[in-house]
């Protein structure tokens, strides 16, 4: 679960409640949540940093070992490769998902009955587990038993998951298949909030549909695009289930992203120290990307009210 939150709400939530009449007796109510969160959220976050300075095989004793793990990770050619794969998946899936999601979101924002019916079907992939989706595609794309073989169409009958280039493409496609509905949902909501009067005014000025899209819809969606992109980009850093079940990082290491590299280092090669170091890199890269995208979106305190 990857989420970006700007610091703003922290201030908002603590808006003095003048009528609260003292704050003594409520404070304890936060404790159960706090205890569980600290134990399985905050402590592990510090723990992963700590473990990156140790040597541990996952079973035996944990030995502090200074920078050994970091040195091993940073000199391993696997790391830049995993980063490159992660970047490719991130960039390609963004390039594919964003225009598609906007188009579908705009389309679904219409209030026609048939579109509401279509929407029911569109959102089904949102409900399925990544494991189920990956297994479906794995069976569907199988060169001997899948759809291509059955239909006898040579174009479809390729070794989709056995060829390095194709496998990466398949990962990007399946990721998009799973997440485009989610982003369309976001865009649908945002488009519906654009005041109709803006379109009416534009229509009076003689602007056509395409012109309206580029001069009203897109600019009005600016913040939605940034939010959705942040979700896509940061989310793609941590894709694990889908790639793991679909290709296990293969063929070779063609789809071995950072998250997979971490899993394989830690839980298959039993090198928990270096795996923790990769996890730290994952967190840091995620935060940097999220912050950069926030920058792109202008000041954090800017109004989110589109079209107001």
């Amino acid at each position: 679960m990857t989420v970006i939150v700007p610091p703003a709400p922290a201030v908002q939530t603590t808006r003095p409640a003048s009528s609260a009449g003292g704050h003594g007796p409520v404070g304890w109510m936060v404790l159960p949540a706090l205890v569980v969160f600290v134990a399985f959220g905050a402590v592990p976050l510090l723990g992963v940093l700590g473990l990156s300075f140790t040597t541990w095989d996952g079973l035996g004793v944990i030995h502090p070992s200074g920078l050994t793990s970091w040195r091993a990770v940073l000199t391993d050619p696997g790391l830049p490769h995993a980063m490159w794969v992660t970047f490719k998946i991130m960039a390609l899936s963004w390039l594919f998902q964003t225009p598609m999601s906007i188009l579908i979101g705009v389309f679904l924002a219409g209030h026609q009955r048939y579109r509401e019916f279509l929407a029911i079907l569109y959102f089904i992939p949102l409900l399925l587990s990544a494991a189920a989706i990956a297994i479906t595609y794995k069976a569907l794309l199988d060169p001997n038993f899948g759809l291509g073989a059955g239909l006898g169409i040579p174009l479809l009958q390729q070794d989709w998951l056995g060829d390095s280039t194709l496998a990466l493409g398949v990962v990007v496609f399946v990721v998009s298949w799973q997440f485009i509905p989610f982003h369309s949902l976001i865009y649908q909501g945002a488009v519906r909030q654009i005041p109709r009067s803006m379109y009416e005014a534009a229509a009076l000025d003689g602007a056509g549909r395409v012109r309206q899209f580029f001069s009203i819809t897109l600019p009005q969606l600016k913040y939605t695009i940034i939010t959705s992109s942040t979700l896509m980009v940061v989310g793609s850093l941590t894709f694990f289930d889908l790639i793991f079940v679909l290709t296990e990082g293969g063929p070779g290491d063609a789809t071995r992203s950072l998250a997979l590299e971490m899993y394989k280092t830690g839980f298959q090669a039993n090198l928990m120290g270096p795996a923790s170091a990769i996890a730290v890199i994952l967190v840091v890269v995620g935060l940097i990307v999220a912050l950069l995208l926030r920058r792109l979106g202008g000041r954090g305190d800017e109004s989110q009210l589109e079209g107001a």
Partner: peptide, 15 residues
């Protein structure tokens, strides 16, 4: 909200 589960799975495993 910003902590990805994947990144802390090793300490969780340890705990």
């Amino acid at each position: 909200l910003a902590i990805p589960l994947q990144a802390v799975i090793i300490p969780i495993y340890l705990i």
